[in-house]
Write a protein that binds this DNA or RNA. Structure first.
Length: 542
RNA sequence: GCGCCCGUAGCUCAGUGGACAGAGCAACGGCCUUCUAAGCCGUCGGCCGGAGGUUCGAAUCCUCCCGGGCGUACCA
């Protein structure tokens, strides 16, 4: 990577001045007259050097190897603008060509074994567009870390027992009785969505009028039917988005295996709990949490938080070195409490990270729709995907930074469906594929081509853009910010389309043509990698 | 009240300490005998919510205020 090697040159020069280290930045120049890269090293280092920035820049410049840059300028308040030799940039392309599909791996991270938990919606209804954001966000984060070389397990945590599931069972039974002509009402707090009617119809067809009262046996039968049918629906919803989990983890198993009690004992041994008002509380506040919270209710039942802590202990026992939970912004208190528990248990601070995202609202006919699974008011994820397609939905779900509220404008999504960034990016890939179809007979080996004919500004610019890809992947992963990748892909598409219009490939003299084919091969690789991480298709033709 | 997030072009949003603030869409004007026009080129459009402060330098950091969202459960 060009940036890395420039940083190293600057650090080496800085060391020769025998000054304490400072945090500097090297970034691609925003304007051509500022060269290829710029650094603020002389600006941030002026204080420790006790020199005016421009004078420090002069001294630094003398310490840099003479042949490293074609030109070096000190500009403005003390920026050092660096101009690269075309051969340096061409060498970066050579490196990309040699990496091929492995391009994007991190050079400075030490990849480990990681788990990403997301969606984790209880099996009480189909996924809504709100879950969709989390589903895509989690899946793309996982792919980003995989691209960096991590081993990632995608996990879905679900609860198939307890109060909400009882309500679900009772709601289903009410729908069943309604089909048989009764006026049994769905509980006020129950689940009102129409999907339960479908499931009830099946039960009616299978059992007729066998379940007349909601006794224990009925409750169990209806619960199992509801959970298994809805779990299938959820898996189908995810499948439609191209998301597959490595593990489905049952909350109930934590109770059955005694892990909840064991977790409580671990906290007790670390002096992390106390009793008050007949309940057991977590000492969250003194461990960085928002506020102390109940772990064991006065009736002896553990709270969701208690079980959640047990779950995280379980994750740690499974030897994941790093765990990321993708969650909505409404779990802030819960998150801080779990983190507090991790501190009490002396887990490393970086063990658990929360990727928090804000909510999705749907704007349709000028109206903003708020969603509630229980009330049966929501737009279903699969409706959205049916209408717009997997690629479009996935793109829009991660194209915003997670901490921004996502307004999904249905009217706009439909109207723009033929003119949106998704096709713009895919079309770039298609155009390259088309050139390669025409050039197939030439059968070049991109890794052995002489790249020196690549001298045009647009070509060197494209290479510099490609060269940034690993850095973008790394930033997007570490910052839980997949939108950096959609932004990058869009920018690369723009640069490519402009290049495509201005320059030709087929028909140029052989050395130029093969050099350009090599460049396009690298561009195609990066589009392919980007789209693959985003879980979008890279069409050969459109 | 308190905590977290958001407020940037007509709309949806990037940019979170650096040199004249960016993109997509919308609007307007050009470009198809040559590798796919789902494209390209150009124009229009902004006191970066407001007021103070820190800094050589602030959309970015700090304080206060205004507006919107989400929390603030012995719910999950």
């Amino acid at each position: 990577m060009l940036k890395l090697s420039i940083e190293n040159l600057l650090i080496a020069a800085w060391k020769q001045l025998e000054l304490p280290a400072v945090a500097m930045e090297v970034h691609p120049s925003e304007r051509p007259e500022f060269g290829d890269f710029s650094t603020n090293l002389a600006l941030v280092g002026a204080r420790v050097a006790g020199l005016p920035p421009r004078e420090l820049a002069e001294r630094l410049a003398k310490k840099l190897p003479k042949d490293a840059f074609s030109q070096l300028e000190i500009a403005g308040p003390g920026f050092i603008n660096l101009f690269l030799h075309p051969s340096t940039i061409q060498a970066a392309l050579q490196e990309i060509l040699q990496m091929g599909d492995r391009f994007g791996c991190s050079k400075r991270l030490v990849p480990t074994s990681m788990q990403i938990e997301f969606v984790s919606s209880n099996p009480t209804g189909p996924l809504t567009v709100g879950h969709g954001r989390q589903a895509v966000l989690g899946d793309v984060l996982a792919s980003l870390y995989e691209a960096l070389g991590y081993t990632v397990s995608r996990e879905y945590y679900f609860n198939d027992e307890g109060h909400q599931i009882d309500l679900l069972s009772r709601s289903l039974w009410a729908r069943y009785r309604q089909l048989l002509g009764d006026s049994t009402a769905v509980p006020e707090e129950g689940y009102h969505g129409s999907y339960l009617i479908e499931i009830a119809r099946n039960l009616k067809d299978q059992y007729g009028d066998d379940f007349q009262s909601f006794d224990e046996e009925t409750a169990l039968t209806f619960r199992e039917e509801a959970v298994s049918r809805i779990t299938t629906i959820i898996k189908d919803d995810l499948d439609q988005l191209g998301i597959e989990f490595d593990a489905w983890f049952s909350e109930g198993s934590l109770h059955r295996n005694g892990e909840v009690n064991a977790a409580l004992e671990s906290l007790r041994r670390k002096d992390g709990i106390y009793e008050k008002d007949g309940a057991v509380w977590l000492k969250a506040e003194e461990n960085g949490g928002v506020k102390d919270s109940v772990l064991i209710r006065k009736d002896g039942r553990p709270t969701y938080l208690m079980v959640d802590i047990a779950y995280h202990i379980n994750k740690q026992r499974r030897k994941f070195e790093r765990v990321i939970d993708v969650q909505g912004a409404d779990h802030q208190v819960e998150q801080s409490c779990v983190k507090a528990a991790m501190r009490i248990l002396d887990y490393p601070e970086e063990f658990l990270g929360y990727a928090v995202h804000q909510f999705v609202s749907i704007k349709e006919g000028g109206q903003i729709a708020r969603m509630s699974t229980r009330a049966g008011r929501f737009i279903l994820l699969h409706e959205l995907v049916n209408e717009l397609g997997r690629d479009v939905v996935r793109y829009f779900m991660v194209a915003r930074k997670p901490e921004s509220h996502l307004e999904f404008n249905m009217d706009l999504a439909r109207a723009e469906s033929l003119d949106n960034p998704v096709y713009y990016i895919q079309y770039a890939h298609t155009r390259i594929a088309s050139i390669f179809r025409k050039a197939r007979a030439l059968a070049i080996d991109p890794a052995k081509v002489d790249l020196s004919p690549l001298q045009a500004k647009a070509e060197l610019g494209l290479i510099k853009r490609l060269d940034r890809f690993p850095e973008v992947v790394e930033e997007a992963a570490l910052g839980f910010a997949p939108h950096l990748l959609t932004d990058y892909a869009l920018g690369l598409a723009r640069a490519f389309h402009a290049y495509y219009t201005e320059h030709r490939v087929i028909g140029e003299n052989e050395s130029l043509m093969t050099a350009r084919l090599s460049l396009l091969s690298a561009v195609q690789t990066v589009f392919h990698r980007s789209l693959s991480i985003l879980g979008m298709s890279a069409p050969e033709a459109m």
